[in-house]
Amino acid sequence: IRCIGVSNRDFVEGMSGGTWVDVVLEHGGCVTVMAQDKPTVDIELVTTTVSNMAEVRSYCYEASISDMASDSRCPTQGEAYLDKQSDTQYVCKRTLVDRGWGNGCGLFGKGSLVTCAKFTCSKKMTGKSIQPENLEYRIMLSVHGSQHSGMIVNDTGYETDENRAKVEVTPNSPRAEATLGGFGSLGLDCEPRTGLDFSDLYYLTMNNKHWLVHKEWFHDIPLPWHAGADTGTPHWNNKEALVEFKDAHAKRQTVVVLGSQEGAVHTALAGALEAEMDGAKGKLFSGHLKCRLKMDKLRLKGVSYSLCTAAFTFTKVPAETLHGTVTVEVQYAGTDGPCKIPVQMAVDMQTLTPVGRLITANPVITESTENSKMMLELDPPFGDSYIVIGVGDKKITHHWHRSGSTIGKAFEATVRGAKRMAVLGDTAWDFGSVGGVFNSLGKGIHQIFGAAFKSLFGGMSWFSQILIGTLLVWLGLNTKNGSISLTCLALGGVMIFLSTAVSA
């Protein structure tokens, strides 16, 4: 259960009878995928790494000078000259100064003066180019299975845990398959586009800190620079940016070097996208990844198990997540596992009318040892309800109150669905055939309105939902006002479609 501690969480529900669903994975976010007769899966884009970055340009932001020398000439005696002028490691300046009897010249006039100092770069920052084909995306998957609280967001041991898996995709191999043991396998067909235009970005490294910066900004930095990788004795261009020549006297000129420019660069980098280094690879934390999940090989585990009949206890007080759902960790005293956990939410304890829904599909106890633990997640209705676990006299209950409203949740879900469709863009549509167009249209309606429909009408039977949709269509056909007619027709059509397409 990876997503319960992530604030940016998206719930995606598969269409009834569908074998695939489109998701948008982004750094700092987590996606929970639910479908009829399929286990619930949490998917998170953990890291995006980039390798084989080529150094484009380096800037010196802290330097020192040494070996200063000057040469001067009297008027009419030609130009002052130093051998160091031809050495690229030196920074030199030529000027004219007033000369006369007082400073060793027989004539009054302008004399030539040249001053040089050896330039040494102490600290530099480097910009590297990123090729999209060198990106690698690491995705962690977790099935809502027989897990306890100690396994949440624990990325170790996934090789031997059938509840978890790690997959890596690249532009050259965008397809992967996550093996989930008894739950089958989940196929991923990803489109490795981060949403960032790397043709316009460089990877900047300064003092063990890293950013993504725009090329134009990078090339306009007014500091000494050299092109390409460091060859040991780089040729620094624009050395004068960190060196200041003071007022010249008759035979000498003082040279000083400016202080470190790291603070000024940090100020200019305010708002830039931060990154990290992992050995020789860069780690990015921006952008998104679009994936199509193929769920035809994914299956529920323990459908044929019998119900657990022994007593359950709450190991922890049920807690609310950031998303309005409830996490419950229970301990089973029996030894008759594997068995299914009898769990439901009810409005009252007399009729036990089921409300809400299970995020953890078909929760089971897989071990036959005593005191096995299991964590599950529920989506309670707004208002008061009861969490009921167990059967008969051994069942345990917990009162729950959820604040908020169904309308607010439906609106929030619609906005999130619209954002998801905007990110998917043209990849969500198939114009290759008439059937493809209608299929894409259905998927689009489901992406945007599916979660809201589930919130508003999830407790009704599909037949009642179709009746309401048919009534809206009838009202649309018999209303003389054009805008009201079109609105009723659209709402009725969407409702009829979703009542037959969205899983219960």
Rank of each mutant, 00 (worst) to 15 (best):
T40Y: 06
L96I: 09
G282W: 05
G435V: 06
G181I: 04
A268R: 10
E159R: 02
A268G: 03
M34S: 08
R299F: 06
N8E: 09
M460A: 05
D37R: 14
S455P: 12
F411P: 04
G102H: 05
H398A: 00
H249I: 07
F382W: 08
H266A: 12
S64I: 04
G450T: 08
D379K: 04
G432E: 11
K480L: 03
E262N: 09
W462Y: 14
M345Q: 07
M206F: 04
S51W: 10
F108Q: 06
A310V: 01
T254K: 03
N8Q: 06
K283W: 04
T95P: 00
A241E: 03
W211A: 05
C60V: 03
G228H: 10
A229V: 13
P132E: 06
S72E: 05
E159V: 01
T194L: 05
H148E: 15
T156N: 05
T156L: 02
G78K: 07
E262P: 04
L25F: 03
V33C: 07
A428M: 07
E367T: 02
G469A: 14
M345T: 02
V255K: 02
V6I: 15
F431V: 14
L25A: 03
T335V: 12
E216Q: 08
S440V: 04
T470C: 15
E13G: 12
G127L: 01
P338C: 06
W101S: 03
L441K: 05
P380Q: 01
A227K: 03
G458V: 00
L424D: 06
T369V: 15
E44M: 12
T156K: 15
T170N: 06
T179M: 05
F198Y: 09
W101A: 02
M15V: 12
S464H: 13
R299W: 08
G417E: 05
A69S: 10
F431Q: 12
E274G: 05
G271C: 09
R2V: 06
D22V: 03
A410Y: 11
A280E: 02
S64D: 04
A501P: 00
I43E: 07
A178S: 11
F183V: 13
N238M: 09
G279V: 01
V143M: 13
T48M: 13
P342D: 10
T500A: 12
F108E: 05
G337S: 10
T360S: 13
G459I: 02
M151F: 02
T32D: 04
V423A: 13
S464T: 13
I4C: 09
G259A: 15
A272M: 13
K454A: 06
P132R: 00
G78T: 02
T115G: 05
F285S: 14
T427C: 09
F108I: 08
E320Y: 02
S16Y: 05
E79C: 10
V423E: 02
I65Y: 02
G492W: 00
A241G: 01
G425N: 06
L242Y: 07
E320R: 09
M140F: 07
Y202L: 06
P39Y: 09
S306R: 08
G458D: 11
K340W: 09
S368Y: 05
G106F: 14
H219N: 11
S483R: 15
Q36A: 10
Q350G: 13
D384A: 03
G78L: 01
A452I: 10
E55D: 04
T369C: 05
G28K: 02
C105D: 07
P222F: 10
E168G: 04
K215A: 10
F438L: 15
L467D: 04
D98H: 07
L467V: 15
G150I: 04
E377S: 01
L472F: 12
K301M: 15
H214V: 04
K395H: 07
G450N: 10
L456D: 10
K480S: 13
F431Y: 08
E79S: 09
C190M: 11
S403I: 15
M495Q: 08
L322W: 07
K290H: 06
S464L: 12
V326W: 05
E262V: 12
L186M: 15
G17I: 03
G102S: 08
S260I: 01
E276D: 14
D197L: 15
R94I: 04
G392E: 06
